[in-house]
Amino acid sequence: MPASPPPRSRTRSAPPLAGYTVAVTAARRAEELGALLERRGAAVVHGPALRIAPLADDEELRDATGQLLARPPDVAVATTGIGFRGWMEAADGWGEGEALRGVLAASELLARGPKACGALRAAGLREAWSPASESSSEVLERLLARGDLAGLRIAVQLHGEPLRDFLDALRGAGAEVVPVPVYRWTGPLDPGPLDRLLDAVLSGGVDALTFTSALAAAGLYARAEERGAADDLTRVLRGRTQVACVGPVTAAPLLARDIPAYWPERFRVGALVRLLGERLPATAPVLPAAGHTMEVRGTAVLLDGELRPVSPGPMAVLRVLARRPGAVVSCADLLGCLPGGGTDEHAVEAAVARLRGALGVPSVVQTVTKRGYRIALDPAAACGS
């Protein structure tokens, strides 16, 4: 859900996303999103959850275009910028672009969001209205608010899915609907990158999972279900891994699964990255320990402002200790958090040794003989805890 920006991390010397791993499920604009995340220090895992597939042939699109040229629509709905531009390019290729733009200019043009508005204007057209929510449901509400739509001819540019509920609601109100299919969304040709992303999420190796479309969320869950891992995915996404979406429409299928998700006030990729740069560090424990300030991030620790990478086993131990700052945690409890499990408590000793080595300040983690380990919380902080 949208929220006021949380307080920034108390350490400023490292990029805001340094020490965090962020997964990108986008197909389009994935490079842009990944570059923005990396610029802020994140390690990026990319696995497209879907792909844009052109229609097997353009006969469906050409047929819909011909219907509209023969009998112009009263209302035309543009749902995506990429889809509308593709439609115009196809019409130009058939030598019908000018005629189509003339027909659309004479209709009432509704655009689902700014990208669709931009595509309309690039074609020399002007939208009559566009919802602030950028949602198809608000477009539908506006059309249905007219009451009886009998005799109204409405063209709807589809955006990779059939929009059956949208079209059926218009038809149920009496409208004559002409769907305009431009492309379809389908699963990735190579599921390998998506499987690797899913494995990283399920193993706890991802701090935040990003979505730029609701279909990507559906695609990720479809793959998880094929692998019998949907319940495990839900459990992880209800836990430590944050879910960041570009907007509420994108978040809807995740919220329906009771998965917490948030999004920026402006539904843009840049705003999404900025919000991640605020939300992830805000959840990091910041502990004064052994005269040092330690911020525990996803795969690293900021120790006095210096980023110290920590491998998964030692980091798992540190997270448990950081959840109970100053308290002694037994070797048995720490053993349960180590990747791969096991029964030999010497594995805990080895993990603690590696943790101390990674931090470069062994005194931050204290050994309490025959009891376990604890963070060497500074006395003033310990008194207040």
Rank of each mutant, 00 (worst) to 15 (best):
L287W: 01
P191C: 08
H159G: 10
G113R: 09
G205L: 02
A14W: 02
E31I: 12
H346C: 05
G313D: 15
G81T: 10
E96D: 13
P288T: 04
V182K: 10
A175G: 08
P72S: 09
L275M: 15
V24E: 06
R29P: 04
G34T: 08
P281A: 01
Q242K: 12
L202E: 11
L61Q: 12
R223P: 05
P2M: 14
D74A: 11
V364Y: 03
R29F: 02
P285I: 05
W94E: 13
G160N: 05
I154F: 09
A70L: 14
E98R: 14
G147L: 03
G113L: 08
L254G: 04
L197V: 12
D231E: 15
A208Y: 00
S330W: 04
R308K: 14
L321S: 07
G384A: 15
R85F: 04
R112K: 14
D207K: 05
R71D: 15
F267W: 13
L197T: 11
L50M: 15
R142L: 04
A282S: 15
G97Q: 01
L276G: 05
L334Q: 10
G151I: 03
A145H: 05
G357N: 14
A251L: 07
V329W: 02
E345K: 06
V317W: 04
G34S: 15
V22I: 13
G239F: 01
A30Y: 01
C331I: 00
V352Q: 02
L189E: 15
G124M: 07
D378R: 02
R223K: 12
A123P: 06
A214L: 07
D195N: 15
F211W: 03
S137K: 10
P72I: 06
R153E: 06
A224C: 09
R10N: 00
L110I: 07
A76F: 14
E141H: 11
H292K: 02
A111M: 09
L194H: 11
G102N: 10
I52R: 06
